[in-house]
């Protein structure tokens, strides 16, 4: 029986299949009661209306069942609110390798907003432009590289 945490952390995001829910910061906590074997997994949505949440809950149950954990509860919390700052460095690297530009650090109140160029995940050029403020999923916007002309997804800073 592998650890419940490892099993839950290995669940991939159903819409961006190169990263896991642990990489994205969707997985908040995994607690296993050593006496009863009961596992409580706590997750948080990226966006309130994210349609992937039901699939993520089902995938967590399947993964844990396959790892020998039968008594599983998946809890969804909304506070503290998910932020793209929770995406791990490994997650950012995986996104970039898959052609999705990772988000810039989130703009905080009271700090002078500094606009960092979104680098093209294909050629690395900072000569990029936003094509559409919304993209293929709630968490992404559509950009294009002026240097290599490739369009690419960009995870919006939230």
């Amino acid at each position: 029986m592998s650890s419940a945490r490892e099993a839950a952390a290995a669940v991939v995001d159903p819409e961006i299949r190169v990263v896991t829910i642990a990489d994205l910061g969707i997985l908040r906590d995994v607690e296993e009661d050593p006496a009863t074997g009961r596992v409580v997994v706590t997750i948080t949505p990226t966006y309130t209306g994210c349609p992937a949440m039901d699939v993520i809950r089902a995938d967590i149950r399947h993964r844990l069942a396959a790892a020998g954990h039968r008594d599983v509860e998946v809890r969804t919390v909304h506070s503290p609110a998910w932020s793209t700052d929770w995406i791990s460095d490994a997650g950012r690297a995986k996104l970039a390798a898959a052609g999705i530009a990772p988000p810039a650090p989130v703009r905080r109140d009271g700090v002078v907003p500094l606009t960092l160029a979104v680098r093209c995940p294909r050629c690395g050029s900072p000569e990029t432009a936003q094509l559409s403020r919304f993209g293929s999923t709630a968490c992404k916007a559509l950009w294009r590289c002026r240097a290599c002309s490739e369009p690419f997804d960009h995870l919006k800073a939230l």
């Binding site: 949505p45 966006y47 309130t48 209306g49 994210c50 349609p51 559409s132 403020r133 919304f134 993209g135 293929s136 709630a138």
Partner: peptide, 13 residues
């Protein structure tokens, strides 16, 4: 796509 995404956020709330 933008309006559908905003609708989805509103539905989530």
């Amino acid at each position: 796509i933008a309006l559908a995404n905003i609708a989805l956020d509103q539905l989530g709330a």
